[in-house]
Structures are given as C-alpha cells and as structure tokens.
Design a protein around this nucleic acid. Structure first.
Lengths: 200, 200
DNA sequence: GTCTATAGGAAGATAGAC
DNA sequence: GTCTATCTTCCTATAGAC
C-alpha cells in the first residue's frame, strides 16, 4: 500500500487509539481494535511500537498535553474583576462541556498510569504542569482585570486545580449542569473576593 | 471441604476481590486472581455469581458504601467555629491518608462503572449519597460550633465535595502532603468565613 | 517496510464427576 | 454444593514470505 514513514504510522495509530479509548474506554482499546480503527493490518502494530505499553506512553503524553490548551477570553479593558474571573471560568467550563469524553479519558488514563510502574511519573509530571498552567492563568486574569491576588498564587492555583478537577469528575458522573454551574459560580465569587485593586 | 452457605462464599469472594483490586488494580482482578486470593478453586466462582459483572456489582456497592463513614470529631463545647471546621477537615484528611489505596480504588471503580451500561447508575446514585452525607456533615459542624451557614448548605456541600474529591485525586498522584495541607487549610478558612454566630 | 498466518497464553465461562 | 478438566474466545506478540 501507500508507503509512509514510521513516524506517520505511529501518529496514525496514536490517533486511532485515542478515538477508540474515547469511544469505548481504555480497557477495550486492544491492539486489534486500534489497528482496525486505523484501517491497518494487525501486523502493522509491532513495527511501529515495540509493545502496547510504548503506544500507551504516546497516547498519554498526547492527550495530557492537549488538555493544557487554556482558552483566554478577550474582554474589554476596564471589565470589573469579578466579571473577568467569572467569564474565564465559564470559558473553561464550556470547554469541558464541549469535550466530556476526552476529559473522562484523561481521568481513566491517569488511573491507568498510576498502576504502571513506568508510567506513574508521567502522571505526576503532568499534574505539575497543570499546576504551573493554573498559576499562569491566574496571573493573566489578574493582569487583565487590573488587580492583584491577596493570597499566594501557588496556593490559589492548587486550590482551583483541585476544585475544578473535582467539579469535572462529579459532572462527568451526574451530568447535572445546573448544580455544576452553581458550584462554579460559588468558586468564581470566592476567587473574586481574593482580589484587590492595584495601587499605581 | 467445609460446607458454607452460598452467601458466605459470596461475601468471601467479594472481600478477596477487594483485596486484589486494592493491591493490583481493577484490570488485574481476574476471576483466577480473585479465587486464588480467596483460596478457592476456580469453579467456585460461577456457582456464587452468574458472571463477573455480578461480582463487580457487589464490590462496587460494598466499597462505595464503606467510604461513607464520616468521622465526627469530639470537641469541647465552646470551641470557636474556625477550629471546629479545621479539625473536622483534618480528621477527614487523616482518614484519606490512612487508606490511600482504598480511595484510589474508589476512583478506579467509578470510572469502570461509567463504562458499563448496567453500572453507571450505581455511580450516579453513589455521588448523590456523598452529597447528602456532606450536607449532614456540614449541618453537624455548624451545630457543634454553634453557628449558622450564611450560604445555602446544598451549594456548600457540592462545592466541598468537589474540592475534596479533587484534592484527594491530586494527592493520590503526587503524594505531596505539604501542598495538600495548605490547600485544605485554605478551604477551611474559606468555610469558616461563611459562618455567622447564632442569634439566640 | 508491509503484510498474512500463527504462536502461545490468559481471559470468562461451562461440563460433568463426585 | 463442590471441584477438576476443558471449551471458546480474545489477547499480545512474533515468524517469515514478499
């Protein structure tokens, strides 16, 4: 068939694996299901990857990286801080609601990684990066709103990461939009109360 | 061998399954591993359970019920509200730290349940009960501290459930005690700020 | 590199003696 | 009810022709 580089093939299989996992879960993402999804013969698997673990490594790095895309909301300058906070959180939440399956897979893969000696570190590093991203995000929000945080930003970031993670997990289970939004707004109000106007 | 009732056998297998899952993860809890752990022959499995799903149903109900045990902290009457809140949260957190593997299994089983059509509802109902338990817990704390919540308790409960869930998940990954405690205390302070002395 | 065919084993479930 | 032996299916991985 069409001659492709091994890298292209690998990419193709990682993406097929992602689709299968999102659709059917990690447990059902067998090598057969993955090559089937990619439209490749079974044998193709093992001259692209030494083993299934190697593919999973690629899948995990891929999806965990992808979910770092933090949507920044363009707001008119002079928007009051509470409004900036709320709009930013709602933008984040819209992203979750638009891609629930991907986020569910993220949790599944994290649990999976914790059980595999060679992969546990990947999950650990990933949460470290989530934290860093959250710090950046909080600082960007403060800049945009023209305020300063009255609490250590790294503490806020950890607190927010945990709350949003729990909120997402809970919503993936009950899919109760109303309750989730109420909790999200409660968090937004809490955050907004932790800002002070910049003295300049 | 020793003659036992089918109920006893079932109980025995559910407990063996729990041990295997806590030790090795859900994916490695095969029927063979489970009966091996219980010291029973392979054939024993299928005159106790119609299928593996039936056993998993039992395991999920068992562990999700068990994790509802909310430790109430005995404190001297007259203890200030912030102290009551903090002590209660720390007691909860100590429980998590003492049984990390059980909690990790809880998350694994929840993810698993969401992928099985017959089990998704169990997870949903379970989170509903977590929420109820959290409401009860918050009301008990207010009673003990002699204060009232200035925010709707169901909103607080949802918010707290989500934060504590995320905190636990995050800690299971990075095992960073210091950061977790800082975040927990931030939450305690937030909660304490939402109380008002009872006018009596 | 690419594919077909198959090895080799482990999974859930059952048959049938006791 | 209890156990051994076995069936069937599906898994990951490899062998070897092209």
């Amino acid at each position: 068939m069409a001659r492709q580089s091994a890298d292209e093939r690998r990419e193709q299989l990682v993406e097929a694996a992602l689709r299968v996992m999102i659709r059917d879960g990690v447990a059902r993402a067998t090598t057969r299901a993955i090559v089937g999804e990619a439209g490749l013969p079974l044998g193709a698997f093992h001259y692209c990857f030494r083993s299934k673990q190697e593919l999973l490594h690629g899948v995990i790095e891929r999806i965990l990286l992808g979910s770092l895309a933090s949507p920044l909301v363009p707001l008119a300058p002079g928007t009051p801080a509470p409004e900036v906070v709320r709009a930013t959180l709602h933008a984040y939440w819209d992203h979750i609601r638009a891609h629930p399956d991907e986020h569910q897979l993220t949790y599944e893969l994290t649990q999976y990684a914790l059980r595999e000696p060679g992969l546990a570190d990947v999950a650990r590093r990933q949460y470290e990066r989530y934290l860093d991203a959250n710090v950046d995000h909080l600082e960007a929000v403060a800049r945009q709103a023209g305020v300063a945080w009255t609490t250590d930003v790294t503490v806020l970031a950890r607190f927010g990461l945990n709350f949003l993670d729990g909120l997402t997990l809970n919503w993936l289970i009950d899919r109760d939009d109303d309750r989730a939004l109420v909790a999200l707004d409660a968090y937004a109000a809490h955050l907004a109360a932790l800002t002070a106007p910049l003295a300049d």
